[in-house]
């Protein structure tokens, strides 16, 4: 794929991934076939900032975990009042990273 397209993708979607992922994504996209560009371009990612807001507001109901697709952990959090309140607070700090990992997983399925 052209470097210009790849850089455009990295610029618009960089905030959805961990910084250490970006180089790998760039390398992978550069050697990828041009026909997949449409698919990559239309992928929907979870915004880590939105996840943090949800975590702050509905963290003790597990809504943040449901939102990023960790249904099992979400149920666990819901049933334990946000893990006695401790897990909910820990997740305020972990949820952005978890969301970025989920986005990476989603992208990996395509590229």
């Amino acid at each position: 794929m052209e470097a210009q397209k790849v850089d455009l993708f990295i610029m618009t979607n960089g905030k959805f991934f961990e910084s250490h992922h970006l180089q790998a994504i760039r390398d992978r996209l550069l050697e990828m076939d041009d026909s997949k560009w449409g698919m990559v371009q239309t992928l929907q990612f979870k915004d880590p900032t939105i996840c943090l807001i949800i975590s702050l507001l509905g963290g003790s109901l597990g809504i943040d975990r449901f939102f990023i697709g960790d249904t099992g952990l979400g149920i666990g959090k819901l049933l334990t009042c946000g893990g006695f309140g401790i897990w909910a607070i820990i997740d305020w700090f972990l949820i952005m990273g978890a969301a970025r990992e989920k986005n990476m997983e989603k992208l990996r399925q395509i590229i």
Partner: peptide
């Protein structure tokens, strides 16, 4: 132990 109950006084679904 429930944050919601301590903050608002209203019980949460799993209280």
């Amino acid at each position: 132990t429930c944050i919601i109950k301590q903050a608002t006084g209203v019980p949460c679904p799993s209280c």
